[in-house]
Design a protein around this nucleic acid. Sequence first.
DNA 1: TATTGACTTGAAGCACACTTCATAGTTTAT
DNA 2: ATAAACTATGAAGTGTGCTTCAAGTCAATA
Lengths: 139, 139
Amino acid sequence: MYSAKEAAEITGLSTAALRYYEREKLLPQIRRNRQKYRQYTEEDIEWIKMIQCMRMANIPIQSIKQYVSLLIQGGTTLEQRYRMVQAHMENIKKQIADLQNAFALTQSKLSFYEKLLKDPMHQNITYIDEWNLFQHGGL
Amino acid sequence: MYSAKEAAEITGLSTAALRYYEREKLLPQIRRNRQKYRQYTEEDIEWIKMIQCMRMANIPIQSIKQYVSLLIQGGTTLEQRYRMVQAHMENIKKQIADLQNAFALTQSKLSFYEKLLKDPMHQNITYIDEWNLFQHGGL
DNA sequence: TATTGACTTGAAGCACACTTCATAGTTTAT
DNA sequence: ATAAACTATGAAGTGTGCTTCAAGTCAATA
């Protein structure tokens, strides 16, 4: 059992964010002690980590909420959940592809700059110059 | 030379977004015709695609703006630009790692659901059941 | 001539994901 | 007993990245 502060420390989220997730029903109602203080269980913490993973994949709060709602409704929603997860998967793949694209572009930008830095003759090029050199593989 | 509408079609952005980028100085001042209509050149379009690539990598508008500003200032800012691009690269790597994480998790969620769907006996499990089965590799 | 349609502008509006605030109750240490 | 530290709540505020709106210009068409 973890206090709000501990849960925040473990997950790296703020206590406010944890309350927000609970309000938005991404988490089940968290157990309370006599003083109404929240008591996060190990499972709560694991589920929060799962949510963080989904958020890293840019899955919107509303989709996560919907997924959780289906999960709570149980077995008959299995196929719906399956389709949701499939859609998330496609989304993740697309994002990875975009990022790999950006990675490649950034890589070539870096080696372009490295060449420039080694060759002081070319350091005074400007906006359009750089753009053209970069575009057409000058140097 | 492309009209606002054409530039929007080519890039997939809205004309409003293109104006926004121009206002925010992500783009240079775009050339105008007699009627003050914008005329996007090929290079403008290419630069817009570059910006889209950066945005796909979640580079904030403000960082792109700063980068463009350094680019316009020219040669003496080369090292600063180099460091910026290096930082972007680290950022992209981190995002790819996060997404690959999400990918793996989603993958295992998918095969978990596939097993469940094949086995009608287990379709009535609920929230916690599913979580536990998933966690501990039941089935 | 009047309307249509593409374009212009600045300003306001919006969705998302939190964060911060104001106020108040409880526990622990001094 | 008083302060420090932690918690609670609802409501309002914030930053980002656009989008939408209101009002107007200009050129071609019916």
